[in-house]
Design a protein around this nucleic acid. Structure first.
Lengths: 236, 236
DNA sequence: GTCCGGTATGGCACTCGGTGCACCCTCAGG
DNA sequence: CCTGAGGGTGCACCGAGTGCCATACCGGAC
């Protein structure tokens, strides 16, 4: 029901978590908009002013751990080496977010139901997702700085990754967190990777033959097949 | 300075436009958050209640014509024939939005400056853009209903189109509306079209065994080969 | 002309999210 | 015992947004 620990190093897990727990109890039983901040603090047994000390707005109590997750993603991208494939890297970054959701399935599903119904929460979630997307795009812009249309590619790929991530995440959330999240996510991200490839398609193919034949077992993982194709087709 | 006419059929262009004009005058001279709704209605010489009759919220006065534009886009997509290429169609739909911005360059640039600075307006713009994206995605989902990962493809392509559109639009807005908007937009959308291709999937080879054979021209774009593989391998 | 009904507008009071400020309580350290 | 700092609180206040009712306007019916 309640969220996980606040930040690393904070020895007091009490007040913030109590507020989140009280808030979600009320949100679930009588709805988000029908619950006032006064209701929450009354149930939590704290002063109204303290609520806004921990959460800058009423919406923030619904996404208590996104700030930390965004910081994790930024750190993950900053720690990437210069020789790893940018698109694969942002896909892995997106998987970080899925991991956060999967850490607390029931909580995530409850929150999903809330954000699906309440327009205000949906708008807030959009601004959260936007920050993830901008983090991915900023990383890709750095990596594509030398390329032609670097920023365009970066923006489009970041948006595509986020969309694929959201597609898989939402279908998992709709299944009440019962389905296998990672498989769907891999599938969705593989599609994006296939569309934007590792490296841009070189227009020139200097192979003598113009037809390539690939044979694969039907149950082979898709990414492996793609790798195979790439090498056979002579993509760098 | 002021926006264009309100809706079609309304013979009275006065009050709504007066509110927009008054609002923007104050926003530009003293900032969005420093301007209260009372200030706006005082300058416009109308009652406070009337403001909320025309604009459901203070943010809406900044985007007075997006509702109409969204309706136009929806109609445009609904009026598309069954034999035109879906990706091209959504790209053309995105151009509709650019056209709306280009109709009133100075107004668009002023609004851009506002939304760039004010977090609340940025969040609101995100929810507007999100509705455009959902309209595109809904259209693509219909068109891709038979396709293998129809909804995934639809979501990703819609997001990519919106990102490309925003990239071109913003660079045009940053140039104070002086650059050539259409050229940049064509370029950006062409990139998306090249990534997600135009023509429907080539004839798939049906192989019922557990080994799959794919034959492809060596210079075929990678995404197309992967599409082929996926459909042949029967991924859910 | 008068009457009438619908619509546009205005005024008010109220709720609720959010903030600035001062206050208090507790606890460590001198 | 005093003191000062920091977390928590109460209070007054602002501004967005809403519901309700009064009013003004306007075209048509009589």
């Amino acid at each position: 029901m309640s969220a996980d620990k606040a930040g690393p190093g904070h020895g007091k897990p009490t007040m913030r978590d109590a507020l989140v727990a009280a808030a979600f109890r009320l949100f679930l039983e009588r709805g988000y908009e029908q619950t006032t901040v006064d209701d929450i603090v009354a149930l939590a047994g704290v002063g109204r002013r303290s609520f806004f000390r921990y959460f800058p707005s009423k919406e923030d109590v619904v996404f208590p751990d996104h700030e930390r997750c965004l910081a994790d993603m930024t750190a993950f991208l900053a720690a990437s080496a210069d020789d790893d494939e940018p698109v694969r890297r942002v896909c892995d970054a997106a998987r970080l977010v899925l991991r956060m959701y999967a850490e607390n399935p029931t909580f995530s599903v409850q929150r999903y139901r809330l954000t699906k119904e309440v327009p205000g929460l949906r708008a807030y979630e959009l601004s959260v997702v936007w920050r993830y997307e901008r983090a991915l795009a900023a990383y890709l812009r750095r990596r594509f700085a030398a390329r032609r249309d670097g920023t365009l590619r970066a923006d489009v790929i970041a948006a595509a990754v986020v969309a694929a991530h959201n597609n898989a995440l939402r279908s998992w959330l709709r299944s009440d967190g019962r389905g296998e999240a990672n498989a769907a996510m891999d599938h969705a991200l593989a599609y994006v990777q296939s569309a934007f490839g590792g490296t841009p398609v070189p227009p020139a193919v200097e192979q003598p033959e113009d037809v390539v034949v690939v044979v694969s077992r039907r149950d082979a993982p898709l990414w492996r097949v793609v790798q195979e194709i790439e090498s056979v087709m002579g993509r760098p």
